[in-house]
C-alpha cells in the first residue's frame, strides 16, 4: 500500500483539516488568555504557541493518539476482515467530527473537538458492530467510560486547582502588598511560562484528535507499526500551528480584547491549573477538552473571588454540548461510513 493511495491521501487530508481546525480554535482559545491579561503580544503568543504546541504534540502526544486509534474500537479485529475498512471508518470519523465542529463554530457553540472525535470513532465502532464485523461487546466500553468520566472530572479538577492557586496568591501576595499593580507586572513573567506550558499541554492532548484516526488507518494498512510514526505526529503539529497562524490569530485577538479582567495573577492561576490537568490526562492516555478545562479553571478563579464577573450559565451550555455531541458525531459518522461502503470504496 502506498502513501499515495487515494484513500490514504484523503485520510491524511481530512486529518490535516481537523488539525487546522483545532489550531485555529482550541489552541487560540487556550492562548487568548495570555493576550487578554496583557502578558504577551499576539505575535509573541503565536511564536510561543507554535514552538510548544509542536513540541507537546511530537514529544508527548502518542499516548492519547493511541487511545483514539486503538483504545475505543478494536481495529485489529476489523482489519483482519479487510484492512481498508479501518481506513474508511476512520475517514468517516474525521469527516463527521470535522463537520460537527464546523457547524458548532458557525453557531458559536462550546463544542469540543475531543468529544466530537471520540463520538465519531464510537459511531464507526457501532456501525462495524451493526454490520457484524465485530461484536458490540468488543468495543472497549471500559475505556470509553473512563474517557467520558474524565470529561466530567477535568473541568472540576481545573476549578479546584485554580481555586487553590489563586487563593494562595491572594492570601500570601495580593493581600500583603501596597501596590497590586507591581505584583501583576511580576506575574507577567510567570504567565509567559504558563503560556508555554498550556501550549505544550494542548499539543500533547489535542493532536490525537487529528492524527489518531490517521494512525489507525495507517496501522491497519501495515504502513505504521505498534508505535505512532514520528512523521504523523509532526504532521499533526504542523497542521495545528498553521491553523493558529492563518486563522487562530483572529480568535486570539477577539478573546484578548474581551477578557481584560483576567490580569496576570488570574491568568497564571487559570492557565497553570488547566495545563496541569491536561498534561495529567495526556499522561493517562485520556483525551479531554482543553477549552472546557480552561472554563472550569476560570470559574475556579472566580469562586476564589478573583474575577469581577463570571457567567455561570456557560456550565449549562457545556453540559448540553456533552450530551448532544457524542450521539450526533456518532450518528453522522455511521451515515458517512455506511455511505462510503455503499458506493463501494
Amino acid at each position: 500500500m502506498s502513501l499515495f493511495d487515494p484513500l490514504v491521501l484523503l485520510l491524511v487530508a481530512a486529518g490535516l483539516y481537523m488539525a487546522w481546525n483545532i489550531g485555529a480554535n482550541d489552541l487560540a482559545n487556550a492562548m487568548g488568555t495570555s493576550v487578554g491579561s496583557g502578558a504577551l503580544s499576539i505575535k509573541q503568543v503565536i511564536i510561543i504557541a507554535g514552538i510548544f504546541e509542536f513540541g507537546g504534540a511530537v514529544l508527548f502526544g502518542k499516548r492519547v493518539t493511541s487511545t483514539i486509534a486503538k483504545g475505543i474500537v478494536p481495529i485489529d479485529s476489523i482489519s483482519a476482515i479487510d484492512p481498508h475498512l479501518v481506513a474508511i471508518g476512520m475517514l468517516a470519523a474525521i469527516l463527521a467530527a470535522g463537520f460537527w465542529i464546523t457547524l458548532a463554530t458557525f453557531y458559536n457553540l462550546p463544542v469540543s473537538t475531543t468529544h466530537s472525535i471520540v463520538g465519531a470513532v464510537l459511531g464507526f465502532g457501532l456501525t462495524a458492530g451493526y454490520y457484524g464485523m465485530i461484536g458490540y461487546s468488543e468495543i472497549k466500553w471500559d475505556v470509553l467510560t473512563k474517557i467520558v468520566g474524565s470529561w466530567l472530572v477535568s473541568p472540576l479538577l481545573g476549578a479546584v486547582i485554580a481555586y487553590i492557586i489563586f487563593t494562595l496568591i491572594r492570601y500570601f501576595i495580593l493581600q500583603k502588598t501596597d501596590d497590586p499593580y507591581i505584583i501583576e507586572k511580576k506575574f507577567v513573567v510567570l504567565q509567559t511560562m504558563t503560556a508555554c506550558y498550556i501550549a505544550f499541554a494542548h499539543g500533547s492532548n489535542d493532536v490525537a484528535n487529528a492524527v489518531g484516526p490517521i494512525y489507525a488507518g495507517l496501522n491497519s494498512l501495515d504502513m505504521a507499526g505498534v508505535s505512532v510514526p514520528l512523521w504523523v505526529m509532526v504532521l499533526g503539529g504542523i497542521g495545528m500551528v498553521v491553523g493558529l497562524a492563518t486563522w487562530g490569530y483572529r480568535v486570539i485577538e477577539t478573546i484578548g480584547t474581551r477578557i481584560t479582567e483576567l490580569t496576570p495573577t488570574r491568568g497564571f492561576s487559570a492557565e497553570f491549573a488547566t495545563a496541569s490537568v491536561v498534561v495529567l490526562h495526556s499522561y493517562s492516555s485520556l483525551p479531554i477538552s482543553t477549552t472546557h478545562t480552561l472554563v472550569g479553571s476560570v470559574i475556579g478563579v472566580g469562586l476564589a473571588g478573583g474575577l469581577a464577573a463570571v457567567d455561570l450559565s456557560v456550565i449549562g451550555k457545556i453540559v448540553v454540548s456533552w450530551i448532544v455531541t457524542v450521539p450526533v458525531a456518532a450518528l453522522t459518522c455511521a451515515l458517512i461510513f455506511a455511505g462510503l461502503l455503499g458506493v463501494g470504496i
Binding site: 477577539t254 483576567l262 474575577l307
Partner: peptide, 20 residues
C-alpha cells in the same frame, strides 16, 4: 450572545464587569 465571530470559545464564561 456573541454575534457571528465563528469561534467556539472561552469567552462565554466572562461576563462584563459591573464595577467599571
Amino acid at each position: 450572545m456573541i454575534k457571528k465571530e465563528y469561534i467556539r470559545s472561552v469567552l462565554n464564561v466572562f461576563a462584563s464587569s459591573p464595577f467599571k
